[in-house]
Design a protein around this nucleic acid. Structure first.
Lengths: 112, 112
DNA sequence: ACCATAGGTGACCAATTAGTCACCTGTCAA
DNA sequence: TTGACAGGTGACTAATTGGTCACCTATGGT
């Protein structure tokens, strides 16, 4: 594997975090409604608390999820900034128009 | 590991493809300039041809890269659609304004 | 004070993935 | 038509990652 001198960049954390379906589902849950606790998130998944906790830590390290403590609870919030930066990396103004038109057409065609 | 019945969804291919730094670098190269051959892409990487080929296949399977044959060469093009769909999954109109404002502020602050 | 509850750590095993190599196919030009 | 060149496949190894468990700390209600 190419490690580039074992340097782990910011974007590497983000993309690795997004690579797992469970973590994407956690982001989906937080997209629906923010500020949930581990307990609450855990109840929606067929996995032990430890598994979910590990996934949340990976999302937090990637800054895709930010947290706030409240007593003995820890509240989780979705941070959309890293997602936007992915978009901006490979979609410039030119491609933006291209893609928008394509997706609008797709929506139109699926309207049948 | 959670396999969800070993179902591999479209978005899984995309996110897995983006999880590797070499593949992201390949997308960067194609973002700069489209229509490159394997030979050309290979020359920019410290890896055997086989490694690069495997990465390109993964990108192609994920539809992040589309190709066109031309004689004995195969030309590679960046497809921005899957990237845009990632954005749309976790950024709605509300967050859109939020994020734009935040990134504009960041740019402003870094202008020193 | 006590105990139930929410969250946290390090070690461990199983499954997946990155990279290389020997070997093969199709195309072009002399 | 033959040799060099562009691309392709399947098998293999080493490293990484996902999930669980035994065990631990901190907070809040009664």
């Amino acid at each position: 594997m190419v490690t580039y001198g074992s340097i782990v960049t910011d974007d590497d954390l983000v993309f690795k975090a997004l690579a797992d379906p469970t973590r994407r589902f956690l982001l989906d849950l937080l997209f629906q409604r923010d500020g949930r606790t581990l307990k609450e998130l855990e109840s929606g998944l067929e996995m032990t608390r430890f598994g979910v906790m590990k996934h949340l830590k990976i999302l937090e390290d990637a800054d895709l999820v930010v947290t706030r403590r409240s007593g003995r609870e820890k509240l989780h919030f979705l941070n959309p900034v890293p997602i936007r930066l992915i978009h901006d990396r490979w979609i410039d103004k030119y491609r933006e128009r291209e893609v928008s038109a394509l997706l609008a057409l797709k929506t139109e065609l699926e309207k049948d």
